[in-house]
């Protein structure tokens, strides 16, 4: 998605190297994806699943599963 538009920032964090970030985001399992610092989900997601999560994250007052 980030290769398609600069409106999307994609960041991958190797959590073993940065345990302080893992703690800050309460990473309990990987992969953990956090969208706009407020919505998160654990587990691999294909494109359609990621798109669904993104849409949920952008809609108001919805929390992720973690």
């Amino acid at each position: 998605m980030a290769a398609f538009t600069q409106k999307v920032v994609a960041e991958v964090i190797e959590v073993q190297e940065f345990p302080e970030l893992g703690n800050a985001y309460q990473v309990r399992g990987v992969p953990l994806t956090v969208i706009n610092e407020k919505y998160s989900f654990t587990g691999a997601a294909n494109e359609q699943m990621l798109l669904d999560h993104v849409k949920k994250a952008l809609s108001k007052n919805l929390e992720g599963d973690s």
Binding site: M1, A2, F4, T5, K7, V8, V9, A10, E11, V12, I13, E14, V15, Q16, L21, G22, Y25, V27, V30, P31, L32, T33, V34, I35, N36, E37, V54, L58
Partner: peptide, 15 residues
Amino acid sequence: LDGLEENLLIKTFVT
């Protein structure tokens, strides 16, 4: 993505 009105920050934590 073309219709996005706000920026998206997607962080993925991996091992």
